[in-house]
Design a protein around this nucleic acid. Structure first.
Lengths: 248, 248
DNA sequence: CGTAAAGTTGATATTATTCAACGGAAGTGG
DNA sequence: CCACTTCCGTTGAATAATATCAACTTTACG
């Protein structure tokens, strides 16, 4: 079905780049040892489908590196992205054996996997895992609700500005930079993926990107590299609270 | 601030109508005894605000009866409903001391409350509560993502049909009826609340309700009582998968 | 090069919003 | 009991926003 696992990977949990943020974040060393023994890695190339909605899903996983998307579709092909999976994010649901969404690798990705049944048993025995998963799920629920506001009530221009703010924020957080003044980052999404995220057509995305560029809110080098001369200006364009914040 | 608690209520957990669905669903009788001792009831009248986004929130609660809404707003007043709280649904987030959303009573409601700190401590000790809360949160996340598809990609007519299907489904489930053939139910929302839920204006909601009525998809008695002569027809109008399903 | 994929832009069509007028039901006070 | 008001809902006409269809450009890549 796919050429994942072409390059088997081995990584000690102690050295794992997502050790402190993933579902295992709260585990103690003895708990980590058990996970260490059960885990296995899978990798997918950019563009590959990890799983189709409705398919049997006998594993759960954490994204170690790279970006994947969760999408839902209507019968006639209209599609809506419902989540963006970044390193440390969790895929799959304990207690459910079929995927509820399509999962697609946007860049090359590496995932740390566990067979579902053993993971579920481990969760029963290990409150630290369940606690962390609850916390992560609550965060995702907040993010989903924030996105509902965007989808239901923001204009196309505000939607684009919001997406750019979020990508900028994530990038600043990874590189330990402040969210002020001049910032630049790569946009890991095609115009079509942006459209699917924002509930727009790709033409509208393109037009609004051009408009933001024309108005000096952003600068573009090539298609994917964005520079924001004034972050506050972008946040205002996004229409969020003046504190620039997601959840209050 | 409000005239809640005008009629103090007392209810044994064993007799509680949401006993088997709420956050306490998995608790054993000894655990229930502990909850019994810590709980208190609050009631709100239709239209009252339970809590404002950003306010200090020192309790968590389950909705026992009635309906409440979770909404988010933009500075200029645009508002989006991000959740509908039905009996057994949980309000508040362990580990967070400020409300992230506005909570408003749509009908008169009764809530079973716990002070937040004691509840958090109880959760640490009682995996049954944490497990159930995780399950409920995952369900809410699925519902939120289903709603994202609606907000981002459905037409106004499909949005209305989807909302009616969901209310019909809930009503059928409560009254133990099948989702087939002729069905009728009360709509617990004003046109404005429907609009806030669906990311539309109230005029568009009104027009589409009229259109569905004109086309024979629904019948209306008064403004709030809806009869669906053919449920399958409504599901087709909603644009969901032919199996009529939410999550696959 | 030549081709495919991604992106841009223009013209036009469609959809939903906005602004405005109006109708009916429920509640209030004389 | 009747005017009066308010809230909720409906409908129409004009407008604005976004989608659709289509042509064309740029970039990446064999």
């Amino acid at each position: 079905m796919s050429h994942d696992d072409a390059h088997p990977v081995s990584l000690q949990c102690g050295d794992c780049p997502i050790r402190h943020r993933a579902v295992c974040a709260r585990c103690e060393s003895s708990e980590l040892d058990e996970l260490e023994g059960a885990k296995y890695y899978r990798s997918f190339e950019a563009g590959q489908t990890v799983i189709w909605s409705g398919d049997k899903m006998d594993f759960v996983a954490s994204v170690v590196s790279g970006i994947a998307t969760l999408t839902q579709t209507l019968e006639d092909g209209r599609t809506q992205m419902v989540g963006l999976l970044l390193p440390s994010d969790f895929v799959g649901r304990p207690g459910r054996d079929r995927a509820a969404y399509n999962v697609t690798a946007t860049t090359d990705i590496l995932m740390c996997c566990f067979r579902r049944k053993p993971f579920e048993e481990m969760m029963e025995r290990t409150p630290h895992i369940a606690q962390r998963l609850l916390q992560m799920t609550l965060d995702e629920l907040d993010a989903a609700r924030e996105w509902m506001l965007l989808l239901g009530r923001k204009t196309a221009r505000e939607k684009i500005a919001s997406l750019l703010s979020i990508v900028a924020r994530r990038d600043a957080s990874i590189r330990h930079r402040k969210m002020r003044g001049r910032l630049s980052f790569d946009l890991p999404l095609t115009r079509e993926a942006m459209a699917d995220y924002l509930g727009l057509t790709l033409e509208t995305v393109s037009r609004q990107m051009s408009a933001l560029k024309r108005d000096g809110v952003i600068e573009l080098e090539g298609k994917r590299h964005v520079t924001v001369p004034d972050m506050d200006r972008l946040l205002i364009e996004a229409g969020d609270d003046s504190d620039g914040g997601l959840i209050a």
